[in-house]
Design a protein around this nucleic acid. Structure first.
Lengths: 102, 102
DNA sequence: TGAATATATGAGCAATTGCTCAAGTATTAT
DNA sequence: ATAATACTTGAGCAATTGCTCATATATTCA
């Protein structure tokens, strides 16, 4: 259901930021990375394994997600753990799946 | 809040379809077109006017949105009216704006 | 019928994307 | 110190994107 408390009018600037948010979720690899983090923080090598993409490619995409503030990272020894920055992404994927599954 | 009734596990195929959904919403022009339809069906020339994009470009993007089943159209005389195919898009934009507005 | 309006579509092109590969930094282990 | 592991980063490249422009189709109007 559409949240009635949300103002659906938006300025041009807001639309661009919103498009950028969806853009981050529009690539299968990035989307899979985000979904892998639903169960908690994951290190780069785990993410690479789960998505079957090279460590380098994953690192590039994580940088993109981090710059866009969808994820944040924490360093521990030689591992870097990535996690969702907030729960909105999870909500969006949930809503998206509702649509996909009709 | 994350819908607890939604299964957040997804197969590879589902992820691709979901990415495609977000991809449609990831372009500022397409997003603006979708948002213009929140208040009801609009003809191509109205949409072009509101988004300040050429009629040709709008038509191309509407075709993309229609193929991806985010919108559907209805012909009346020489006008073609476009409308959202269901309310999920509206929900996604609403959730997205929550994120953007922190 | 012919002109005007509304929309669709294909070609072409610059910009962006997502990968690989090679090289770099940082941390731990021997 | 040297090697191994974990990750990052820049260059380069093929594929995709979103526009414009020209042209085509469909409908209404005079």
């Amino acid at each position: 259901m559409t949240d009635p408390g949300q103002d659906l009018q938006a300025e041009a600037g807001e639309v661009k930021v919103l498009a950028e948010l969806f853009h981050q979720m529009a690539d299968p690899t990035r989307l899979l990375l985000l979904m892998s983090m639903f169960s908690g923080e994951k290190c780069v090598c785990e993410l690479a394994e789960q998505t079957d993409v090279s460590v380098s490619a994953v690192s590039h995409q994580l940088r993109s997600l981090r710059t866009a503030r969808l994820v944040r990272s924490r360093k521990n020894g030689r591992h870097v753990f990535y996690m969702l920055d907030d729960d909105h992404v999870k909500d969006l994927v949930s809503k998206g799946l509702e649509h996909v599954r009709e």
